[in-house]
Write a protein that binds this DNA or RNA. Structure first.
Lengths: 223, 223
DNA sequence: ATCAATATTGAAACATGTTTCAAATATCAA
DNA sequence: TTGATATTTGAAACATGTTTCAATATTGAT
């Protein structure tokens, strides 16, 4: 919260993750080194494994500089999460999920998303922890994540490829679709957190989603 | 995680919050002073407002002793949350929610629960933050919280008073009821977190629950 | 190439959760 | 009451996220 960096280098990208122009190549490289170092450390030791002094050392950047680029430890992990989401978006655009009913498709979508998260368990745990930090700073980014996920879910419900070029706006989906997407995300997130805490195995995540979708009678996308 | 306290004073209560016998009265008093101090500080400054050095000072207990009674800052806040849940349980037992349909009743139940949480916003934020900490230590307590909430939700769906004397067991509810309860809790929690992060007003919490319940066709408790 | 503006470094300091431990107290059975 | 045992205290130390700042380096316009 306190004082912002004097020079707002941290605005390399907008809050939505859109790259801002006008950034020296060396700065982009520094930015990447930082993120890569965090990923590397998170893969080994999860959230706690990411010690910022180590991040600074691995990425060959001064500790103070880290804070010119990011607001906090959580902020870096959220950035990494955004990159994961981008991968998922591209995968969905290139290879839309198939299946004959919205229920099947949406279930398969979440299976894919879950696999992407749980493939590197420690890294996933670190990102989840960052999301759940409850920090106000972070909450708005989480909201952005949410609306991008909604777009993907709606596409899966409809059985159409996502149109990534199209802006994210409520106009592209019905109220009902957004409500369903909202709930499924809630269930997905809660299940991931439970999984991360060791309360249940990976497989349960998918089954909860399926149950939730079924409960909402996700048979046809309008009903 | 690390080393447990040498002498397990911290087991004043079991993980479920059930008081264990055989505790000197002076220890119970210390325990209470600690919790009260945390509540007092959390009401003023939320999660960050709870500085353990202050807790120690206000409760007139040495810092090291705090850690004989609780595993962490989150642990104390979770204890406070459990107490809130107990209040809710007693309120529901004494004055069951009424309404002619499961949808109405469950909605009213969550309105009551929400009011109980948001009445002291900073305190609520602190408890939510503790819940979301992602700590494994804490995850199992959250699971316990979950099943107690499930019992209350099922009672509301059925329009019967909770039987607090009855043990919490799956046998007391149908699969379907538990699934609905699970999802509503996910939505409730996510909405509370969104509210805590300033993303939306209190009123939206109730409306999301209503929408979620309606989506699941919570018209009669078996259907 | 030179200079002014801007960014990075290195190192120390700070804040706060958590741990440690010897000395002082409290508790309780005999 | 006394002594053995268990608990609490007080104070310092530790770990790690975050901030600060003077000295140094980089960059971009001229």
């Amino acid at each position: 919260m306190g004082s912002r960096p004097r020079l707002d280098v941290s605005r390399l990208r907008t809050d939505d993750g859109v790259p801002k122009a006008r950034l020296a190549a060396s700065q982009l490289r520094r930015h990447r080194r930082i993120v890569d170092a965090v990923i590397e450390l998170a893969e080994k030791g999860g959230f706690e494994g990411v010690r910022l002094r180590d991040v600074a050392e691995v990425s060959e950047v001064a500790l103070g500089t880290l804070y010119k680029y990011f607001h906090s430890k959580e902020d870096i992990l959220l950035f990494a999460l955004t990159e994961e989401l981008e991968k998922l978006e591209h995968a969905m655009a290139a290879h839309p999920v198939d299946g004959t009913s919205p229920l099947t498709r949406v279930t398969r979508f979440f299976e894919r998303a879950t696999r992407g998260m749980t493939y590197r368990p420690q890294f996933a745990r670190a990102m989840l922890r960052a999301m759940a930090s409850g920090d106000v700073q972070v909450a708005s980014k989480v909201a952005g994540f949410h609306s991008r996920m909604t777009r993907l879910i709606v596409a899966a419900l409809r059985g159409k490829p996502v149109d990534l070029s199209r802006d994210i706006s409520p106009a592209t989906s019905t109220e009902r679709e957004r409500q369903v997407a909202f709930m499924l995300q809630n269930v997905w997130f809660a299940s991931l957190v439970g999984w991360a805490g060791g309360l249940h195995p990976t497989r349960d995540i998918a089954s909860r989603i399926r149950i939730a979708a079924a409960l909402m009678h996700t048979k046809s996308s309008e009903d």
